[in-house]
Nucleic acid binder design. Structure first.
Lengths: 203, 203
DNA sequence: GATTACATACCAACTGGTCGGTATTTTTAT
DNA sequence: ATAAAAATACCGACCAGTTGGTATGTAATC
């Protein structure tokens, strides 16, 4: 992490956010110091506090960047183009299971990690995480709405079902961290798929 | 949090763990300092490092205490005495939904909170959290096993279903923290119940 | 000639942890 | 039964390193 080669002018902010995404995913927000971030990004503290008013502001920026990143990634995926809405939902589930094949650091969620620590101590970060999680609903909710329009299920709303995808995602990450194994997280989406097939009569 | 009245001899350790449970649930492990803990417990640093070799050791002790506490709480609950195994499962779900009516600080999970931050940085805490989560499986898994013995469901194991309860619990807590609302967490158990009713043909 | 984008040196407050001491309880020897 | 000894439970001052943040200076860009 030495700064032998100077970081090109204009890249400091992006590199700090990249470093934050990586370090905070590993250690959490509080355990990651500003010095750590600067060293990992290859910039100095001057650069840090030029771009971010505080460590908290970096946290907000990180979560907002995460929302944009993940939003773009899901929006660009082919599952969105399937003709049948329920197939789009199952396509999303497939994608999530694929992601769970990667290393933990690559599928863990920045919003979930940060909000766990900061939901009480930092309202701005909590609010950014709320926006991020809500934007996650949007990756399936429209497809669920279309599927429910074609095949209504009494007592079940698209919003509530969309939330279950985030519950499975976030809960799966915690189980994966605790058990050091992503299998239970993958199983969560197996169960979710089976549940949906039962609800929609799609054996 | 002043120490005007001296803490009776012999209570320091228990009070430190109580303080840790409360503070770490609010702020997380890294953001809670040893000084904070001592102040909240009404003891000095001498007491802290007499009972715990390090802050990490306190973390391990806290999670282990949590495992015992929650284990005793669930074991003592009447849902365990219902004659039908599936009714015991639904009784457990009812209990979980009840807990979600309390303030967030009372239903958030110590193991989930700490492992989120420390799964990479502290193997001992991660292992304690793993034991805690696994002990959580045991609160439903025997009932699920009995239910599956009476009514087998192809492709579904009691272990995998039991894990889903922890996924719903942990994921629900994160959603509750992010959205500042426990409703999605409660909905997770509604969906889980509906899923089980469909699996076991219990409308 | 501003403004932006950094670098460097610096700071007070706090961090986890140590250490010598003391009051209280428990164990042991008589 | 009791005094001495040993162990336990705690206190509180202290320490070196780290924390988030600031103040000042400088090179590049607009």
């Amino acid at each position: 992490m030495s700064t032998l080669t100077r970081v090109p002018r204009g890249e400091a902010r992006a590199r700090l956010i990249d470093a934050a995404r990586s370090l905070i995913r590993q250690r959490g927000f509080a355990a990651t110091s500003v010095d750590d971030l600067c060293a990992a990004a290859g910039v100095t503290k001057g650069a840090f506090f030029h771009h971010f008013a505080s460590k908290e502001a970096l946290g907000v920026a990180l979560v907002e960047d995460w929302t944009v990143m993940t939003g773009a990634m899901f929006a660009a995926h082919p599952y969105n183009t399937l003709p049948d809405p329920l197939d789009r939902v199952f396509g999303y589930i497939d994608l999530r299971r694929e992601l769970l094949g990667q290393p933990l650091l690559d599928f863990s969620c920045v919003a979930g990690t940060t909000v766990q620590e900061t939901y009480e101590s930092s309202p701005p970060i909590r609010e950014a995480a709320e926006r991020s999680i809500r934007s996650g609903f949007a990756h399936v909710q429209p497809h669920l709405e279309a599927a429910l329009a074609a095949h209504p299920v009494p007592g079940v709303t698209a919003e509530s079902l969309a939330q279950q995808f985030q519950i499975a995602t976030q809960g799966g990450i915690i189980l994966a961290k605790a058990l050091n194994d992503a299998a239970p997280a993958r199983a969560a989406f197996d169960h979710l798929e089976r549940y949906l097939r039962l609800l929609f009569g799609r054996a």
